[in-house]
Computed example of a mutant assay.
Amino acid sequence: MSGRVVHTRTGGPTGLDLYDRTARDAAATVIAHYSTSFGLACRLLGPRPRPHVRSIYALVRVADEVVDGPAAAAGLSPEATARVLDDLESETLAAIGRGFSANLVVHSFARTAQECGIGEDLIRPFFASMRTDLSTNRHDPASHDAYVYGSAEVVGLMCLQVFVNAGAEHPRTPSAALVDGARRLGAAFQDVNFLRDREHDSSALGRDYLGLDEGRSTRGEVLDRIDADLAAAAAAVPLLPADCRRAVTAAHDLFAELSARLRTASASAERVRVPDAVKVRLAARAWLGLPPRGARA
């Protein structure tokens, strides 16, 4: 059918248009099953950026799952798992070049990358960090920062490319202030997750991302860094396009709430969570257009 759109008797699309839509639906399904909190925030995005952000997070989630257990549970050796991750990276980059993949999640991401200007400079560091999880269990400050950049900050930068460029005729470069805000929000998210998952990471995976086990840092120091990153990110939210601010505010405030709860929880407490009622309140606050917590009025 040469990529042209053909319509069925009921008026629905077929061909590449149907394939694109099915790929976007597949990405949305991945997110719905893996992250209720992210799904809630994503619904606050406008229709212009929403499917693209889902496509980014679906690919990120699949890659993360490759290295975090399901592949090993399926019987893959570490070497075989590494090859699966390498193949996923290669297919992602190839799909961006040709505009098609037989892997629906990769296809959805590739179409987003083409439209919004997401290139190898962001994709390769992400896969490099995922690959690190197969070989490095203990991180020093330098390896922590490199890991956080590739696993979280570049994801924020991918989303920023969407916020600025989705629907535009030609991709443009975001401002330095937005780039800094996206990176610091991603870093805060990742460090919160490291603290929340510390017990599981240590006991089940043998990983220490923050140097807490070896005394190189303390919970208080990590939380101070998180709160500084959240404050910097909050300052950048008003610079975002209007159809992105509510979702970013909701995500920001959810992690600010987690940071506050981590400060009052003991290190040995069960995984800290935000009750659903509080999540709804934070989402409602964002929907009303209120600024992120900690932002200056």
Rank of each mutant, 00 (worst) to 15 (best):
P51I: 00
H144G: 07
A176S: 14
R261E: 09
E169T: 10
R172K: 13
G99A: 06
V5L: 10
L85D: 06
T249P: 00
F126Q: 01
D224N: 12
R245D: 05
R261G: 07
A236W: 11
A28Y: 00
A82V: 02
T36G: 03
E79V: 07
K279D: 05
S101A: 12
P51Y: 00
A295S: 11
A102M: 11
P51V: 00
L282S: 03
A177W: 07
P141G: 10
H170A: 14
A267H: 15
G15V: 01
V278P: 00
A128K: 10
E65P: 07
L104N: 04
A110N: 08
A74H: 10
L239P: 10
T249L: 00
R61F: 00
V84W: 08
D213E: 15
S55F: 00
V84C: 14
A166L: 05
R273C: 03
S55P: 09
R216S: 15
A204K: 12
S151A: 12
R216H: 15
L210M: 10
A80N: 09
R245Y: 03
Y34W: 10
N165W: 05
P49I: 06
A232E: 13
R246W: 02
A251C: 06
P292Y: 11
G206R: 07
R131M: 08
A182V: 10
R198C: 14
G289I: 06
T112A: 07
R184F: 00
E153V: 12
K279T: 01
G15T: 01
L88V: 04
L85I: 02
S35H: 01
D208T: 11
A113V: 06
T10A: 15
R198L: 15
T173D: 14
T92M: 05
V192D: 07
P125G: 13
A250S: 04
G181E: 08
D140W: 09
A177F: 08
G69F: 01
L282N: 02
A94R: 15
D201Q: 08
I56Q: 07
S268N: 14
S202Y: 15
R246T: 09
D253M: 00
T10D: 14
F127G: 06
A187D: 11
G156K: 04
C159K: 04
T92P: 02
L160N: 01
T249K: 02
W287T: 09
P241G: 10
G3A: 14
F100W: 13
C244N: 02
G3I: 11
M158G: 03
C42S: 13
A58I: 01
L93P: 01
A267D: 15
A32F: 05
V62W: 00
R83Q: 14
H144M: 15
R98T: 15
L59S: 04
T14F: 09
S151C: 07
G186R: 02
E65M: 08
A41D: 02
V164M: 08
Y147D: 09
L122D: 10
D17P: 09
A82M: 06
S101V: 02
T92Y: 06
L85G: 05
E79G: 12
V192E: 06
P13G: 04
L93E: 04
P49W: 02
D121R: 14
R184I: 03
T112N: 02
V179Y: 11
D133C: 04
D276K: 14
N103P: 07
T29K: 01
G211P: 06
W287L: 14
T173K: 13
